[in-house]
Design a protein around this nucleic acid. Structure first.
Lengths: 234, 234
DNA sequence: CGTCTGATTGAGCGACTTCAACATATGTGG
DNA sequence: CCACATATGTTGAAGTCGCTCAATCAGACG
């Protein structure tokens, strides 16, 4: 199951693909880490760590999904990223976490003590090299997210988000994708209100681009059309 | 009304700190890099590398400033970050640059061949460890930028930006800060139009929070007030 | 000077938000 | 298993912040 990852990971120019690695590469990498990780479980909406906490561990999602967010004093919330099965989080923190990590649903994760992780990195050069690759990918994803928040319209953001999810789940036209987060989480990730997200989804439904059998599932009826909307091809 | 605990980070200040390496650490760290770097010069608006180019080098700014941006097919532009003296850039790229790097004015930079850099990292563990720290700081800065674009108003963004600049230049109330980029660059960094940036600056001028002797200099008359605006304390 | 580029200000508009009502799950105790 | 409660999602109507369009201004430079 755990095989050393070749670190020549391809990062496609494609926006959505750039945000997430191909699914099969996730479990392959970083076998040496297994020796120092311990399993942690979190229930729905449980806080894994909070902004400002001193850093003593990083994590990797095994099952479930996590949101990384920050809440402003007046309650405004922005989600920086979601972490799904196979993703690391808490890796970018220096001495204090800059973001809060919360379980979207029930979560199983591997916890890596920072002290042990640092030691392992010193001992095994390839561990640090691979983790550096993880940071690079996260930074590139954050930069793409910046463009979305700074310069895309509401429709474009929602379409981009769905393309991202679809890409992550290898879904083509006709397939159904799982949407583990609620509408409010999507809104906070996209820098919109929940109402605007709903209206965008409804409009795509009307345009026969997607179907929504239930809140947590969306059928991609026309992926090409979705991508066009995401890119602003009107 | 309750003042939040110290762990509730001031967004703008946090962002600024995340962007800023202590000045004296810049030249001290990564001394081994000196052996493999070569000096490059770029003129105002020259492209250093373009989105999609295959990666063969990373850089460190010696003098001047660089913008990292992406342009959408229809011309919309988002600046992901500015790099000032002492900052690395192009470090996050995997096999293709995801962003375009352009010289704001005339720029002197050190160019590190990726092949040599990779080799040096393999040979000297502390080089890779330090560069990982750079990536961590960049990622944290990008996450703070995300919050700004997703959840702050125009006034808050402009104020945050000025606080950032001031922090980077160790400026207190009464001091003047240098603004190396034009209004359009500021707008594209903040996800606003140039007009909105102008109006925000004018309003702060009217409120006696700042003075603008010329386009490339701003006097911070009341840093505390500026920070309040940045945090949305109305 | 006149020209050019970048910055500033004003007027009107539109996309997204806000506020409000309603709908659809999901869960709980009787 | 149903009645009710709560959370989450959807739709409509009205308001607002930031954008667009347009005119004017301020330096820089030949």
């Amino acid at each position: 199951m755990n095989v050393q990852l070749s670190h020549n990971l391809n990062l496609a120019a494609n926006h959505a693909v750039a945000m997430k690695a191909p699914v099969d590469s996730r479990d392959l990498m970083l076998a040496p880490l297994k020796s120092i990780g311990t399993i942690s479980r979190f229930v729905r909406n449980e806080t894994i760590f909070s902004e400002g906490d001193s850093v003593n561990a990083s994590f990797k999602v095994v099952r479930g999904a996590v949101r990384l967010c920050k809440v402003l004093p007046d309650g405004r919330r922005q989600i920086a990223d979601f972490r799904l099965a196979g993703d690391f989080f808490g890796l970018e923190a220096m001495d204090e976490y800059a973001l809060t990590a919360e379980a979207l649903g029930d979560v199983v994760a591997v916890r890596y003590s920072r002290a042990r992780l640092d030691r392992l990195e010193d001992e095994q050069a390839d561990v640090r090299r691979d983790l550096m690759g993880v940071l690079r990918r996260d930074l590139t994803a954050a930069q793409m997210h910046l463009i979305m928040l700074g310069r895309q319209t509401a429709m474009e953001r929602v379409a981009s988000f769905l393309v991202q999810l679809a890409s992550r789940q290898d879904a083509e036209s006709g397939k159904s994708i799982e949407v583990p987060m609620g509408r409010q989480d999507i809104a906070d990730y996209l820098g919109l209100t929940i109402e605007t997200v709903c209206r965008a989804i409804s409009e795509m439904k009307r345009a026969r681009t997607i179907d929504v059998p239930d809140r947590h599932h969306i059928v991609i009826r026309n992926l090409a059309a979705l991508q066009s909307v995401a890119e602003g091809d009107a």
